[in-house]
Structures are given as structure tokens and as C-alpha cells.
């Protein structure tokens, strides 16, 4: 099973998915992220899916689960870089990903997290 690496940039954890995700990798990523948020005290998580060709219900649910887990550690999650074909397919599949914050690209995602992070410190 391939593992998805988690990078730390300041107070943000960056997950860039570059592999064809199998279910075990998805579950491992959820656990690794929970561990990492807890140990680093990160205030934000960015999941970059610009290289992801399909998001099915299992992978889609991962985004919601990661967002919920992060919330328990007082961290925000933003999913960035969704391909147009993936977005159309997700909607038709019936997955609305309510509760998961998204941004067009990594830059905007980081910006959103920066604003949320500042709000928390104030």
C-alpha cells in the first residue's frame, strides 16, 4: 500500500495526493493526519487533489471525515484543485460534500486558512 506524504508549512499541513488512491491508503491518510495535527498543533489542513482523476463515494467521504477530525483538533480543512470533470461527476453521484470547504487552487486555499488562523488568535 502506498502512503500519502504530509508536509508541514508553518501552521498548515499540506497533503498533495499524487497516487491512485486505494481504500487502505485513504484510511491510513486519515490516521496519519489525525496523528500529525495532534502532534504539531497545526491550525489548518490543505488537501490538494489537482492530480486526482476520480473521486468516488469512499474518497469523497474521506474529505468530510478529515474535516471533522481536524475540527476536533481546532484545525480547518480546505480541499483545493478539484478538476472540472471530477466536480461534475461528484454532483451526479450525489455527493455534495456539504461541510467541506473548497478553494480553486492551493494559493487560495492557503489564503483562506491564513484568514481563519488569524481570526482564531485574535
Amino acid at each position: 500500500m502506498e502512503r500519502v506524504p504530509i508536509l508541514k508549512i508553518g501552521g498548515v499541513l499540506l497533503v498533495s495526493i499524487q497516487i491512485d488512491l486505494q481504500d487502505q491508503s485513504v484510511l491510513a491518510l486519515q490516521e496519519d493526519l489525525a496523528e500529525k495535527i495532534s502532534s504539531t498543533g497545526a491550525h489548518g489542513v490543505v488537501i490538494d487533489i489537482s492530480a486526482v482523476e476520480i473521486v468516488d463515494s469512499f474518497i469523497g467521504r474521506m474529505f468530510a471525515t478529515i474535516a471533522s477530525i481536524s475540527r476536533l483538533f481546532d484545525a480547518d480543512t480546505v480541499v483545493v484543485g478539484m478538476r472540472p470533470a471530477v466536480a461534475i461527476t461528484l454532483v451526479e453521484l450525489g455527493l455534495t460534500l456539504g461541510g467541506v470547504r473548497t478553494a480553486l487552487d492551493l494559493e487560495r486555499g492557503m489564503k483562506i486558512l491564513g484568514q481563519l488562523g488569524r481570526g482564531r488568535d485574535a
Partner: peptide, 27 residues
């Protein structure tokens, strides 16, 4: 998923249709 994508590309389905078919196959 990879096999279905290969066939979908060979058949020249549109990118959206490829994505839909591969997603259905994954489920």
C-alpha cells in the same frame, strides 16, 4: 479503474464521460 480508463480513452469518450464511467466502475 485503470483498465476501464484505458478502454474509455481508446473509445474516445469525452473527459467527463471517462470520469463518470471510471467513478461508476470504482463504486
Amino acid at each position: 479503474r485503470q483498465l476501464v480508463r484505458t478502454y474509455a480513452q481508446q473509445t474516445k469518450l469525452s473527459l467527463v464521460d471517462q470520469t463518470k464511467l471510471v467513478t461508476a466502475a470504482s463504486e
